[in-house]
Each structure stands twice: as C-alpha cells, then as structure tokens.
Design a protein around this nucleic acid. Structure first.
Lengths: 365, 365
DNA sequence: CTGAAAGCGCTTACAG
DNA sequence: CTGAAAGCGCTTACAG
C-alpha cells in the first residue's frame, strides 16, 4: 500500500509571495493581472519569489472577487457519439487558447440536465453550451433568469435562449434522400431513432417529404433506440424487409446504423450497392473506410464546438456578439454505398462544378 | 438577431433569502448544510423563500469559505478514443451520484497536460484523475507538492503519485498473442503505435516475448500514428506484407487498426480468418459487429472511471482509502477473426470451464 | 434552535 | 509605480 500520506500541505498564498518579494499584496496581484502597471524590476522579483515558493494563484478566490470564473460549461447527452466528442474537442481546443476551462456534464435525461445546469449556475460559469435546442421548461426559466451567455447547438430551429450554432438537419437529410432518389431507387426505407429529439424527427420528416415529393411510398420506417449501436442497422434491415421484400435501399439516421446494415449485407452475401444500397448520417470515421465506402452527410462537430467557444467567450467578455446565429452547414459525401457516382467523376471534374470536389474516395457535394 | 440582452441581473444572494425568511444569514446556511440543526418550520420558511426568489447558492463563495470544491478534474489525451470516453462516462456517473462535478481537460502533449494540471490546482479541485502513469517531471513535482488525491489509470506499473486503477497491459497482450500462437499461426506481425506511451510499449513487448518464447520470429513490427485511425490497419498490412509475403496474421495495438486491416482484406478479397487472421485490443463496439467478429481484449474503461471516482471522493472526504491500487482486470473475447475457436464451444461447455463463458457471438476467456 | 463575527484568498477602484 | 481598505458570498466555530 504505497498510498501517499494525506496531510494536506497549506498552499502558498499571495500574501506569502508579497512578503518574500518585499512588496504589498496588491502589487503581486497587479504583477499577475496587469503586468505593465508594475515596474519590470519589481515584477521580476515577484515572479522569482512566486516560482521559488511554488505559488499557484487560488482561482476560486479570484473568481469570487472578480465575479468572473473563466470557466465555460457544456452539457452533452453522451460521449459515445463521436459527433459530440468532436464538438467537445473543438470547444476545449478553443477555450484553452483563450485561457478558459471546461466544466463538462454528460446528461441524457431532462432531470440530469436540469441538475447539471443548476450546479453550473451555482458555480457562476461564464457561459454554457447546450446540446440540441429542446430543453425542459425548468432549464429554460433557470437560464432566462441567469442571463449568462448560452449557446444551443446542432440545430437552427428556434426559438433560442440566446445564441445558436448548428445547421439544418432537415435540409441535410432531404438533400441526401433526394440524391438517392435521383440514382433510381424506388423502394427506400428509413432506419431512425425513436423520435425523442427534434434533430431526429427532422431527418425523418425530410426523408418522408423527399419521397412523397417524388411520388414514392414513404411509410417504410423503423425506429430503434440509440443504444442499439451497430446492431440497430441489422434489426432495421430485418424489420423493413419483412414489410417490403422489394426494399432496395435504406436511409439511416446515423452512420452507425448504416454500417451495421452494411455488415448484415455482408453476412447475407449481398453486394453493396448492387443488391442493396445504404446512406448514413454523420460521416463517422468508419464511413470512409468500410468497403465500399458509405455515402453520408458530413456534419461539422468540431466547428460547432469552436464557434460556440468563440461566441461564449466574446459575449462573456464584451456582453455582445455581432451574430447570434451561426450556420456551419453540412456536406454530402458520396461514396459507393449506393449506386456509384464514381462514373460521374470525370464528367463532374470537366464541368468544374464548384460545389463538387474529390476528397479521398469521396465526392463532396 | 434575436440575441438576448446581456445586462446581467444581479443573482439572488443568501442574505436576500435570509431577509425574506426573516432569519439570519447563517440560519439559511445551516438550513442548506445541516438541515437537522434547524427547526422544521424555520427550514420550510427558508426553502420557500429560496424557491420564491430563485436562489442558487454561489458555490464559488462556498468553496472559498469551506476549502472544499466538490470538483474532481480529469486529464485525458483524447475523446476520440472510446476507451477514454467510457472512462469519463464511468467517472461522471459516479461523481454525479455523490454530488461532485467534473472539470475536464483534453490534453495530448506534456505541455498541455502541465497547463491543465496547473489550472486545476489553481481551482483547488478535490481530486485529479490522470490518464496513464507517465507524466512530465513538472507534473510530478506539482502534484507532489499539492498533495491532493490523485488517481493514475490504465496501467499498474509504478511508481505512482498516489493511487492507481488499471490492469496489466503486458499480461493482456501476452495472453492474446499466446492464444493466437496456440491456434497454429507462425508468421505473425504487430501493428502498433509509435511507442510514446508505456501502455503501447508494453503491448509490443508482450507480443515479442510471446513469439520468442514460442521460438518464432518476432521482428515483424509496424508503428503508425494514432491519428491514422482505421487506415492504420491498411498501411500496416501493406508494410508487413512487403517485408514478409508469408504473413499469416497480425496482432494490433487497437481494434481500430484491426478493423481497418479487416476492411483491407475485404478489398483484396481475402477471407478472414482463412486467408488472414487478426486480433485487436480494446473491444470497441464495432469488434462484435464487423463480420466475422474480431477477437480482442476487453478493457474496462467504465469500471476504471467508476473506481477512480470512488477512490478520489473517499480520499478527499476521509483522507484515506483502504487500497491505493486497483486491478480491474481484462478479458479475452474470442470471435472469428482468427482461426475459429467456435469448434471448441461444445468441448469447453462440457468441461464446464469456469473461465470460459459464451456472450453473444464470443467466447470469453 | 438561532445569530454576531471572523475569515477564506483574492480583485478592484482609489489614493498617494 | 506602489499600497491601504473594502468587499466578493459564503462557512465555521462559538455564544447565547
């Protein structure tokens, strides 16, 4: 048991540094906060004393005195979802750069979200990032009262509490479905999540609108839990084939389902896209790698986190941002999981279509 | 621009609640901290006033006064790695239960780790979780001086700063390699990460030791960057086949490489495991789903996070824990990516081997 | 069961 | 360029 003794040593305080440097407490504070207000020589003496003593400023005390915490909080429903992991990465990268820190809560129910938001407010965070744009009335009124900078994410459909960074899930899903229809598929199913979240409902609605606009049947829907993971694709395929044996293709609410369905096709010995076609959503890392390449929507999680960080810090520091709404957009990445666009590459390249570029094994639309 | 006005409303303070309830400030404090010290009737009046005013206790002030933050901090190198995501999930789940919060830093360089640890200490966190057991001398001396509870994770090889939760990477990788050897493979390669991290070096050493103990060639090594993702498996396969055309199998430092190699085999039309065999590490979700199923080591990230939370909170509150070292163990999950064990199922079941159980499409050893 | 007082370790105008 | 003083919003012994 090599456990360390726990008699906490008393941390060095600013007053200790002041004494050691032979100056007053507030000159030390100034040396750290507004270095140019302190004569270079004095400053050096203070820094030397601080280093010597191993002084680490007590940020808690500083927060209380200044009323600013330099902490931004975020609530995400899950870290298993790599979109959110990317967003957090974008957030931390940008916050770190600006000297802020991240208080993170993983909360997948309204109750846990409310609890997280409450303690975050108690910690007087300088700003808050929320996943999605649907929150309980309690969360709304809490944030309404607190009036700290808030960014909602991953959607653009209001009303918003304060600011928003996202893109239109409806447009993205509709464009992808239309692309699939344009390739000639007629019996197309949808593998979705139980429509708890607005973002998921919008993808479903976009799918159905696109099919009905093309005069196609749009009721081949499957809804599974997010926790199914890859296996959701298999279950969806089984279910929809049971209802429509001529099913040709499936649009999935997430790459995870799409890849799961792809695996199921492999097991059945069904070539993709010849025997069955698939489209995903999210451009998870695996989408580019799994043969024959998954056509999907690339969303910009990292950018969402980065822009959110920028907005939150800016508003925390100046009380104002020029634009409270940011559309980070999306892209369709065309690979070979449905009727190959590959044949189009030379033609597209010749046309020099600005909206189209090759990136690795994909066409970007 | 529906941006909200940013004139921060002055938050309700404890003294406001006291006035509204007609009691003193400290009776309010007691009502929240030690409810039983306050008469039920008074308590109700205070809670009613607090709810009425929308009072949210200022935790910053509370921290400063009490010297305890109820915040635990964690440093992970990445969230893209689902092992770490799982650990964070285990950590937050347990911390939430005990009324603690998580301050998270994603830091993949010694500099960023040092910066993160420094500000965490500045925030006077009650405990700190570190990923891995190798840290810069600066981090060591900082934590040595601070004497707060620290848990290092994912390994059991000391020396440690304070406490550790993990398992033996060496044993896990060695056992897996030996299993592969026992199935008759002779030309086996290793697809690893650049050996920056001790955990990775140990897996490599275990691989090499197992081969040389079996009298086999153990120098077919590839080292790629973690950032290669799935594509690392393809690159490794190309590289090692270039050096040894008779290569039969590859042990990978991560499931991601193994699955990438599996995809490459598909592209080449090589049946797995008949033409080529693979073993992974980590039991990522995809390992169970990708045909024909990836044999791998299951690590217990969620448990690591949970046990770490327990230790940190316990030590923060009592200054002591019974065991400073926790081995959460590992399991080998045998699927069909190398010479099937499936044939063994009936035999194993008959023997009633306690170490062996079926779980889904896998044998657990 | 309730309350007056000191103090946690900083920052922030404001003087000198 | 440097410093004395008040205050941030709580908690914590300690009296009454």
């Amino acid at each position: 048991m090599s456990q360390r003794q726990s008699e906490r040593t008393v941390p060095v305080k600013m007053s200790d540094v002041a004494r050691a440097a032979g100056v007053s407490l507030m000159t030390v504070s100034n040396a750290f906060q507004q270095p140019r207000k302190v004569r270079a020589e004095t400053r050096e003496r203070i820094f030397a004393a601080a280093a010597e003593l191993g002084y680490i400023p007590n940020l808690i005390a500083g927060n209380l005195a200044s009323g600013r915490s330099r902490v931004i909080a975020a609530v995400v429903p899950s870290l298993r979802n790599s979109n959110f992991a990317r967003m957090i990465q974008g957030l931390t990268d940008h916050l770190e750069q600006r000297g802020y820190e991240l208080l993170l809560a993983v909360a997948d129910t309204p109750e846990r979200q409310l609890a997280a938001v409450t303690t975050f407010l108690g910690r007087r965070v300088d700003g808050l990032l929320l996943t999605g744009t649907e929150h309980s009335p309690e969360v709304h009124s809490l944030l309404e009262a607190a009036r700290i900078p808030v960014v909602e994410t991953w959607n653009l459909d209001g009303p918003f509490i304060d600011m928003v960074v996202g893109f239109s899930n409806y447009e993205a899903a509709r464009a992808l479905t239309e692309l699939m229809i344009s390739r000639g598929y007629r019996h197309i199913g949808f593998a979705g999540f139980e429509p708890r979240d607005l973002r998921f409902r919008e993808r479903q609605r976009a799918f159905q609108d696109a099919l009905s606009a093309a005069g196609l049947r749009n009721d081949l829907l499957f809804f599974g839990s997010e926790s199914l993971g890859f296996s959701g694709g298999r279950v969806a395929l089984d279910h929809l084939l049971g209802r429509e044996p001529d099913l040709q293709a499936m649009v999935c609410v997430t790459d995870i389902f799409a890849v799961g369905a792809l695996f199921e096709c492999m097991r059945r010995g069904w070539p993709v896209p010849e025997r069955f076609a698939l489209a995903g959503y999210g451009d998870y890392e695996i989408a580019a790698e799994v043969p024959p390449g998954l056509t999907t929507v690339r969303t910009r999680g990292y950018a969402i986190g980065g822009v959110a960080a920028k907005l939150l810090v800016e508003k925390a520091e100046t009380g104002f941002v020029a634009e409270a709404t940011h559309n980070v957009g999306y892209e369709r990445l065309c690979r070979n999981s449905f009727f190959p666009l590959v044949g189009l590459w030379p033609a597209l390249a010749r046309e020099g279509d600005a909206r189209c570029s090759r990136a690795g094994n994909s066409i970007v639309l």
